[in-house]
Design a binder for these strands. Structure first.
Lengths: 175, 175
DNA sequence: GATATATGTCAATATGGCTGACATAAATTT
DNA sequence: AAATTTATGTCAGCCATATTGACATATATC
C-alpha cells in the first residue's frame, strides 16, 4: 500500500524529508507512559492531571499569579478555579495578596503540596534516569536542545521566559 | 521539600541525583505544542484528539482490529465506539470482515482519511524538522534512543511490537 | 468619581474518558 | 447439535475537565 512516497496532500513536499512517522509515534508512547507514572499515583489522592500541573508550576515558580498560571496552562479561569479551589481547600497550596498589587493572589505550595509534587516528580525522574542511563552527557544536551526547539517561542508566558532565560525584550513582559 | 534545591525559579542544581525538573518541564511544553499543531487543524473538521489517534494508527497499521486499537489507545470500547462511528459515518475509515475470523472488523483509512492524516502528520513533521534542523544524524539517533527508552516494554501491544521489532507485525513505512 | 484590572463564581454545555448491562454473530468446545 | 466463548456493538448513565457568558468584588489607576 501507499507507503512513504505518497505525500498525498502537498505538505512537506521535499522528497528527502518524508513524514517522520516513527518519531511522531515514539513521542506519543513516550509521553503517555511518562505522564502515566504520575496519573497512577494521583488516583490515590483523588486528584487528576490538572491538579498535578497546577501544583507543579506553583511549586516551581513560587508566587505565581493566577493570571500567570492561566497563561502557562492555557485554560480558562473557570477551569482553573475548580481545581485550584480543591488544592487550596485541602491545604496543598496557599494564597497571599501581592505586595504591590493587593488584588493579586500569589500562589505558594505548602509543605504538603511540596511533598506530593516531589513524589510525582520523583517517579518521572526515575523513568528519565532509566532512559538516559546509556546516554552520554552531550547526548543529554542534544535531547534538551531538541525539546527546547520543539517549543513555540512566540508569545512566551512567564514560565517559558524563565526556562529560556529570555533576554529578548519580549512584547509581553509587564512590570 | 528536601526536594533538591528549588532556587526560586531556576534550574535544579544539577547535582548527582536530583529531580530532573528541567526535562520534565521541557517535555510538558514540547508535547503541548506538538499536539497543538494537530489540535488546531482538527477543529476545522469538528474532530478532536481522539479522532486523530484512531485515524493515525489505522492509517499506519492497515487492517488493525478493533481489539488492537483498544490495546494501543488504552481506552474502553465504549469510548472508542463513539469516535470510530463518526470516522466511519463520515467516510474517513472503512471496515472489512476478517478473512480467517469473520467476527473481526479490520479497519482501513479511506483516501479521505489518508489525506487528513497526511495533513496532520505534515504539520507535526514540519515542527520536528525545525527542531532537528541543527542536530546531527547521530544526535537524531540519540533522541530516538531516548524516546524508545522512555516507553514501557512490559505487555507491549501489537503496535509497540511493530515499533520495537519484537514480533511479527507490519508497520507501513520505514525511515 | 469613573473606569479598568485581577480574581472569583454561577450556570450551562461539550468532549472524552469510565462502568455496567445486554445483544449479535461467528468461532470453538463439548 | 448444543453450549460456550470471543469480537464487536450499543444503550444508559457517571465523572473529570474543558468551554463560553454573565456577573460580583476588591483594588488600582486615570
Amino acid at each position: 500500500m501507499a507507503s512513504d512516497s505518497k505525500a498525498g496532500d502537498g505538505r512537506s513536499t521535499a522528497a528527502p524529508a518524508g513524514v517522520r512517522w516513527e518519531i511522531i509515534e515514539l513521542l506519543f508512547f513516550a509521553y503517555r507512559d511518562f505522564v502515566g507514572d504520575a496519573d497512577h499515583e494521583l488516583e490515590a489522592f483523588g486528584f487528576g492531571r490538572a491538579h498535578h500541573r497546577v501544583l507543579h508550576f506553583v511549586h516551581r515558580y513560587p508566587g505565581l499569579k493566577v493570571a500567570d498560571l492561566l497563561d502557562v496552562l492555557r485554560i480558562t479561569k473557570q477551569s482553573l478555579g475548580r481545581v485550584l479551589k480543591q488544592l487550596l481547600d485541602e491545604g496543598y497550596i496557599v494564597q497571599k495578596a501581592g505586595n504591590n498589587d493587593r488584588r493579586q493572589r500569589l500562589l505558594f505550595a505548602t509543605a504538603k503540596g511540596e511533598a506530593l509534587v516531589a513524589k510525582l516528580a520523583g517517579l518521572q525522574t526515575d523513568r528519565l534516569n532509566r532512559a538516559l542511563r546509556d546516554i552520554s552527557p552531550s547526548g543529554v544536551d542534544t535531547i534538551r536542545q531538541f525539546l527546547r526547539a520543539m517549543i513555540d517561542r512566540d508569545d512566551p508566558d512567564k514560565v517559558l521566559e524563565a526556562i529560556f532565560g529570555t533576554g529578548t525584550a519580549t512584547a509581553k513582559a509587564k512590570e
